[in-house]
């Protein structure tokens, strides 16, 4: 989930979530970056309203936790 944290960090810093930026953040933390995953992440997040997702998580911890548990076996 380093990838997600990297994306969130960029989002919070007001930076665009591009392959380049994500890669830079991950590398700065000493992560061995997998290009394919970075690509997949950036593509996936293109349609995601991160602000909304974050707010939902902040406001409704119960909701966030529940799907987490449900998703666990995946």
């Amino acid at each position: 989930m380093e990838y997600i944290y990297a994306a969130l960090l960029l989002h919070n810093a007001g930076k665009e979530i591009t392959e380049e930026n994500v890669t830079a953040v991950l590398k700065s933390a000493g992560v061995e970056v997998q290009d394919a995953r970075v690509k997949a992440l950036v593509a996936a997040l293109e349609d995601v309203n991160i602000e909304e997702a974050i707010n939902r998580a902040a406001l409704a911890p119960v909701a966030a936790a529940a799907p987490a548990a449900a998703a666990a076996p995946a």
Partner: peptide, 8 residues
């Protein structure tokens, strides 16, 4: 992170 991860 989880919320964004699930959305992704």
């Amino acid at each position: 992170m989880l919320a964004v991860a699930l959305a992704a």
